[in-house]
């Protein structure tokens, strides 16, 4: 497979890989590294890619596994925990928008959710995947996905209502 063919396959969903990685790893830099790693792994297996019926789902699963591994090793080695109070100086458009208070608050709320709920919420409410697609990516049953999603949405809402009431009171 040529590079251009590979890029044609990968380009439509590489942003989704990055966003999932960022949802899990929080820091932009680590998410970029993770995305790069995944794309390189895909490229080195590029002969097999043609035989996968859903490259996107496969890549999402790889990203999920890679990020969960990273998080595990992060918990093992304390040194890396420095990143938990991560701030970056990157003044991309994205950042400027995120500075808006309520959105910033949302990011913080989402980062308190368990990883599984974070992933489900990311894949459904941000990326708008159907349940069976998410089921394939996360290797979960659709009913389990609905349960996790419902919990995640309710948790976010609870926090937002709390915050909203503080704002008024």
């Amino acid at each position: 497979m040529r590079q251009s063919e590979f890029l044609n396959i990968v380009t439509p969903f590489k942003d989704k890989l990055f966003r999932l990685a960022k949802r899990l790893l929080v820091s932009t830099e680590e998410a970029e590294d993770a995305t790069q790693e995944i794309l390189m792994k895909l490229w080195s297996n590029n002969e097999k890619i043609a035989s996968y019926n859903n490259v996107e789902a496969f890549a999402m699963t790889m990203t999920k596994n890679y990020c969960l591994d990273r998080l595990k090793s992060k918990q093992a080695g304390n040194l890396k925990l420095v990143h938990s109070n991560y701030t970056d100086e990157n003044t991309s458009l994205q950042r400027q928008i995120e500075v808006k208070d309520s959105l910033n608050w949302m990011t913080r709320i989402l980062n308190t959710l368990p990883e599984q709920q974070r992933m489900v919420l990311q894949l459904r409410d941000v990326e708008q995947y159907e349940y069976d697609e998410i089921a394939e990516m996360l290797d979960m049953k659709p009913t389990a996905i609905r349960v996790a999603l419902s919990r995640a949405r309710k948790a976010v809402r609870e926090e937002l209502i709390k915050k909203h009431n503080y704002g008024i009171g």
């Binding site: 497979m1 590079q3 590979f6 890029l7 990968v10 380009t11 590489k14 942003d15 890989l17 990055f18 966003r19 960022k22 970029e32 995305t35 790069q36 794309l39 390189m40 490229w43 080195s44 590029n46 002969e47 991309s92 994205q94 928008i97 995120e98 959105l103 990311q122 941000v126 990326e127």
Partner: peptide
Amino acid sequence: VAKQERYTKEVPLKPGRN
């Protein structure tokens, strides 16, 4: 807003095994 975030780095491709 979250959906607008992009992976802006170059896709790093070493010449593949092929």
